[in-house]
Each structure stands twice: as structure tokens, then as C-alpha cells.
Amino acid sequence: MPRNDTLFHWLMLAPALAILGVMLYWPMLGTVIESFHDSSFIRPQPRFVGFEVYERVFGGRDFPHIVRNSVVWTVAVVLLQNLLGLLAALLLNRGLPGQGMLRAIVLLPWVLPGVVAAIVWRFMYDPQLGLINSLLLRVGVLEQTAAWLADSSTAMAAAIFAAVWKGFPFSALIYLAALQSVEREQIEAATIDGAGPVRRLVDVTLPAIRGVIVVNIVLTTILTFNYFDMIWVLTRGGPQSATHIFPTKIYEVGFGQFRFGEAATYGVVSILVLAVLVAFYLLATRSTAARRRTA
């Protein structure tokens, strides 16, 4: 590549890289350094302690719950959101009457400000005043009011459900767009070969949008893992620690309890956990891709 070409590309990349470097990496570096210090609001002079704070974090009573909750939350929201998004996209791609209107409606949750969506859902789940209980009681699914968010066994599921509602339109949109680019001829050829709708979906459509699925899953994983508003408004991580995830814990420890050093450590650990999660997805897709190629 000619030298002026290299220079040209560096100049094109420079503004974006500079901003990311200064505004995200530099503060994050500070956070990483802080995570090796014992510091809090009431002890303003940080003291280097190596991995001591990490040991404290890993040994905390909450820690196993937070890791497990974060993984459950992220994986469940991502899978359900993508599944529902894909199904909605398939449904909206059939050219049925009323389709245009429905496509617009489906996108509404994504547009609603996150804090508002969370407040609406907290109210919907209210054991006495909420719409959900009152509908379920009316149709006879429930016999008595259920306190969805106050029960350790249902709180996480309720939070996941609300998050899927808020997030699935984004996935649906991307899948819808992807489906529109699948070649008609391919599908028709498969139909002539006698493939039913399920075969067509599995053999033609899904492989054609495989790339989109992978990207969608990675992107929604990152966004969901750091999705703070929903759980914070619904439960603040409770009851007990049943819905505590990394972002709510970081906020609570740092701003709720003035312990910035420990919050920084949780922040670093959270990136590691998320990176492992993303790497896992990428490895999984790469190995299926490899199998596909050899097959």
C-alpha cells in the first residue's frame, strides 16, 4: 500500500480513535488502577493493595449471585429477545394485511425512554394495582394475587420479561431487514423441491441470515449485560440479591455506599465476565462455521 494511502487511513481513523481513547479508555485505565487501591469516599488517600480488593469482591457473599444473575439475565434476555425478534420478523415479512401498521407498532417499546419503560413495568407488576395480576385473575390463570417482583423465585423472570419487551423490537427490525434480502428464488426453488415451511426456514432462510444472527446476538449481549435502568427501577437488585447484576451492584456500591474503590473493582471484573461471554459466543459461531465449511 502506498505511503500516502496509509496516512490517509490514519487520518480518517484518528478523530474517532482519539475520542474513544480520551473519553473511554483513559477513564477506564483510571478505573483499573483504582481497582488495585483501597479507596473510598471516607478514605480519600488511595493505598495500593494489589489484589486485596479483588479478593474482597470475589469473597463477598453477593458475588456468586451477581455472576450467576448477570449470566442468566444476559443469556435469557438475549436469547428470548432474538427468538421473539426473529419470529416477529418472520410474521411481519409475510405481506399480510395491516402489516405496515404493525411494523410501526412493534418498534414502539424501543423508542420509549428506558427509565419510563421500567416505571411502567414496575406498576404493571404491582401485586394489587397492576394490570398483569388483574388480567390473570380475570381469565383465571391466577387464583390469588402474585407478587412477581417481591418473590425471589419470580423476580428475575419478571425482569427478563420486561427487558425482552423493551429490547425485542431492535432485534426484530434487524431480522426483518435481513429477511428482505434473502433471495426469493432460493425460497421458491426449495418450495418446488417440496420443502415445507419449516424446512424452508431451516435450510434456506436461517443459513442466509446467519451472519446477522451472530452480530445481533453479540451486540444485544453487550447492551443487555450493561442494561441498568430496568432492574434498578424494578427491584434495585432485590429481593435479597435475587436480581442483582453487575451494573446495579457497581452503582449501589459506588454511589449508594460511597465505596468507589470497590465499585471500580466490580467494574473491571464485569468487563472480564462480559468479554468471556462474548468470546464464548464468537467461538461457538466460529466452530459451527468451520463445521459448515468442512461439511
Binding site: 401485586p127 394489587q128 417482583l149 417481591a150 432485590g238 429481593p239
Partner: peptide, 16 residues
């Protein structure tokens, strides 16, 4: 008390 104490606040009780 109304069900759901573990996620209820004084604000929720006010509405009731």
C-alpha cells in the same frame, strides 16, 4: 399486610 412486602415501598402503600 398486602402481598409483595419485599418489593413494596412507602409510596406503594400510599396508593393503596
Amino acid at each position: 399486610a398486602p402481598a409483595g412486602i419485599l418489593n413494596a415501598s412507602s409510596g406503594d402503600m400510599r396508593e393503596l
